[in-house]
Amino acid sequence: MSETRATAPVFPPGRYGRRRDGRRRLLLPVTLAVLVGIAAVFLVIRLYGQYGDPNYDAQIVGWSDVTDKQMTVRFTVRVPAGGSATCGLRARDYAAAEVGRRTVTVTAKDSATHIDASEVVTTTARAAVGEVVRCAAAG
């Protein structure tokens, strides 16, 4: 018996175009994955710089003196010793619509790292909730 082996077909030179090898198929997906990874790193760095500064952490204590025109918001801010912070305050109604907003700057006295503050936010309607949107370094 004669033994025959299957071999790759042999094409005449110059016909049917150039043969592709397997390495080229991976180039585009690998390149796209690297570009997406780089973009994700830059996005994380930017968002951390904008929202993630732990030195200026604010906590709402409460709100009082609610009328149709204003609300007093009480809050605490952690800052570096002797530093100051700019905080955005917001008042919202029962439907969660924003009815007032104010930006305030608070400064630590001496070497304190926590600032207790109370600020009045003017509103366009009766507010139900007062909140601190965010605090950042004053500057």
Results as ranks from 00 to 15, higher is better:
46 R>Q: 12
85 A>K: 03
58 A>L: 01
123 T>A: 04
5 R>M: 12
83 G>N: 11
6 A>G: 03
128 A>C: 00
103 T>Y: 03
118 S>P: 03
86 T>C: 04
61 V>A: 12
100 G>W: 12
69 K>R: 15
52 G>Q: 08
110 D>V: 01
8 A>N: 05
104 V>D: 06
83 G>I: 07
98 E>T: 15
57 D>N: 11
17 G>P: 11
23 R>Y: 06
118 S>F: 02
23 R>E: 06
27 L>T: 10
126 R>N: 07
138 A>D: 01
73 V>H: 11
59 Q>C: 00
43 L>S: 07
8 A>G: 04
79 V>K: 00
93 D>A: 13
11 F>I: 08
109 K>M: 08
44 V>L: 11
69 K>M: 03
53 D>S: 09
83 G>H: 02
106 V>T: 02
130 G>F: 07
104 V>M: 06
90 R>I: 15
9 P>K: 09
11 F>K: 04
56 Y>S: 02
24 R>P: 00
139 G>A: 10
57 D>R: 09
98 E>G: 10
94 Y>N: 12
14 G>P: 08
43 L>W: 06
67 T>L: 11
99 V>L: 05
21 D>Y: 12
10 V>E: 15
57 D>F: 11
25 R>P: 00
108 A>M: 03
69 K>I: 08
40 A>W: 05
35 L>N: 07
24 R>T: 13
134 R>G: 01
52 G>L: 02
118 S>L: 00
102 R>C: 00
51 Y>E: 09
92 R>Q: 14
